[in-house]
Design a protein around this nucleic acid. Structure first.
Lengths: 196, 196
DNA sequence: CCTACCGATCGGTAGG
DNA sequence: CCTACCGATCGGTAGG
């Protein structure tokens, strides 16, 4: 049987990307070295460059994938005809779900996007801005319909997006609280408030 | 008139610290170089070491100062006999106030504490944990008194602490919204919720 | 996928 | 506060 030519396999590449996300999350993008990544991937640093073209490309791929997923979900939700309240709850729950199931990628994307190079940095920021504006539009609809309090929509958007990131702390410390209770509490806090 | 001996002045040190906070905020701790800091301070990199002993010392001073200020405020508040609701509002408003008036320091402390060296890293994390526990205790009092919804106190604490950091985004983009409106909206959202 | 290696840059020191 | 410089380490390349 002929041994298959050992060219760069997409599988190997995906493994490297996963390891990179883990290292970036733990140490930060700058503090992660290609030698660390190589060791975790079972090869020499120089060999990584058969699978990727640069360290920044790894970050780029992580950030773009995450951004695309959030975009796709929102696009689908906007086509829906449920009320603003239900939409906001779905958005909050989706963010929680992303944080819980793809912790490393989302965490790194949230913190390390600053190290993207142009033109990807500008593109990333534009996409994020657009995403926030679309969330603000949903909240504005709720305000107009008298369903939401008359808050400034952008304040509400950033508050909610920030609050949802508290999941990061839970993922870190494996507390004796189920994901479901955390998610339910978060949704209640943001939609109904802390006070009784 | 005798020219005063030009030894290391506390003033110069404070200036360097302020510049460092600005650079750390913009570029991150690792990506900030002592040569950049030297240039902004109007001297050569080597000369910085007449005023400080290491790059990490700068970060340490920033993180400790911020942590002490939050601690002091909470200590004072705990002696107060107002209800849990009023206490939580005061805490939220203090966090907002710190973010607005000492943006660089708080931002860097929130993001770059990971680069502290031992034993300060452990000390910082212990202090933060203790702070969160004391907030959770206040929330628990509110829940017991029937003033707060029956949420898990730690979930509420982390949600609120995360939400308050959304101020960071506002500080960055000078929007046409006053600090007061942002603060009021934030307090309302967290205590009363988004829904009408 | 490896060995060998490069140019750049880093935080920090010596000695004045 | 400066000049001169060091040892370490980085991301990445050459050439196989």
């Amino acid at each position: 049987m002929a041994r298959p030519k050992q060219t760069t396999s997409p599988n190997r590449r995906r493994q490297i990307l996963e390891q990179a996300a883990g290292l970036f999350k733990t140490n930060g993008f700058n503090a992660t070295t290609m030698r660390q990544l190589a060791e975790q991937s079972g090869m020499e640093a120089a060999s990584l460059y058969n699978h990727i073209s640069s360290k920044e490309e790894l970050l780029r791929e992580i950030c773009c994938t995450v951004a695309n997923d959030f975009n796709a979900h929102l696009l689908q939700l906007e086509a829906d005809d449920s009320c603003a309240s239900r939409k906001m709850e779905a958005i909050i729950r989706f963010h929680i779900h992303m944080l819980l199931t793809r912790y490393n990628d989302v965490y790194v994307s949230n913190r390390d996007w600053k190290h993207l190079k142009e033109p990807w940095l500008t593109n990333f920021l534009n996409q994020r801005k657009l995403y926030e504006n679309r969330l603000a539009a949903i909240i504005q609809q709720g305000v107009d319909a008298g369903k939401f309090k008359p808050v400034h929509p952008h304040v509400a958007v950033l508050t909610i997006l920030s609050a949802v990131r508290s999941i990061e702390y839970w993922q870190r410390s494996k507390k004796a609280i189920s994901s479901k209770q955390i998610a339910d509490d978060l949704v209640m806090l943001l939609l109904k408030g802390l006070e009784q």
